[in-house]
């Protein structure tokens, strides 16, 4: 499979893109470290604040992981390079999927490394770390799909980039992580059933509190969002991909 052969090179391109590493690893690493120092062992309502903040921080940066796949798909399929890619004797759709897969995997690995760092250095309680990484993987996948939907939906890539930022910042904002949101039915409904960062947090928190049913329900909602957005991405992609 010639498409699989290209994965090594996509990974090399990613590893060398230091801006991606800065955005998805260095910045959250520094923030996690600073906030952990500031929080110390402070508690609120019997909960260790460091636990909550660090879990949210790692999850929040997963919202932006989709920018990796988005950038590479744009470069390879929506710039002059598309002609070279199209001239090659391989299935370009499959090549697009492998690019997306590598971008998503990279985001998951960076998220897992961050989670590992918070556990080892700051003793953050993630409950079951394997489950948490699974939830991080769901978030990274959703983020990649959503960002690709933006890429396929608009003609100008910089608009797609802005939309992906709105997706990330919007989710954080609605979750009330920047400032408290009003107790409104619509906002509460969005946070309970749609907002990926809240779904991911609830899934991890429920597992941590041995509430496996709730954990699976939230993971299932994330999975449902992935399925719906994946179908939308496929439909838009078939229309826009060369």
């Amino acid at each position: 499979m010639r498409e699989l052969y290209t994965m090594r090179f996509t990974a090399l391109r990613l590893i060398r893109a230091w801006v991606v590493l800065l955005l998805l690893f260095v910045v959250p690493f520094v923030l996690v470290t600073l906030l952990s120092i500031i929080m110390g062992d402070a508690e609120e309502g019997g909960l260790l604040l460091r636990n909550e903040i660090n879990v949210m921080m790692v999850l929040a940066f997963q919202l932006f992981g989709g920018s990796v796949a988005m950038n590479y798909i744009h470069q390879d399929f929506f710039t002059e390079r598309r002609y070279r890619i199209q001239s090659l004797p391989m299935n370009t759709t499959l090549y697009g999927f492998t690019t997306m897969l590598i971008g998503t995997l990279y985001s998951i690995i960076l998220g897992a490394l961050l989670a590992g760092y918070t556990v080892l250095v700051w003793n953050v309680d993630w409950g079951n770390i394997a489950w948490s990484i699974f939830i991080i993987a769901l978030m990274a996948t959703l983020s990649s799909i959503v960002c690709l939907i933006f890429t396929f939906s608009v003609k100008k890539f910089n608009i797609a980039e802005r939309l992906s930022e709105v997706y990330g910042v919007g989710a954080i904002l609605i979750a009330g992580l920047i400032f408290p949101m009003p107790d409104h039915a619509v906002i509460n409904w969005v946070n309970e059933y749609i907002n990926p960062i809240m779904l991911a947090y609830e899934a991890i928190d429920a597992y941590r509190n041995a509430n496996v049913g709730d954990a699976w329900m939230n993971a299932g909602l994330l999975g449902g969002l992935i399925v719906i957005t994946f179908v939308i991405m496929l439909l838009l992609g078939r229309r826009r991909m060369p």
Partner: peptide, 15 residues
């Protein structure tokens, strides 16, 4: 059996 040299540079800058 074919090769294409594109008008713009289409090499991978990170490789």
């Amino acid at each position: 059996k074919m090769g294409l040299v594109t008008q713009e540079l289409t090499v991978f800058e990170d490789l």
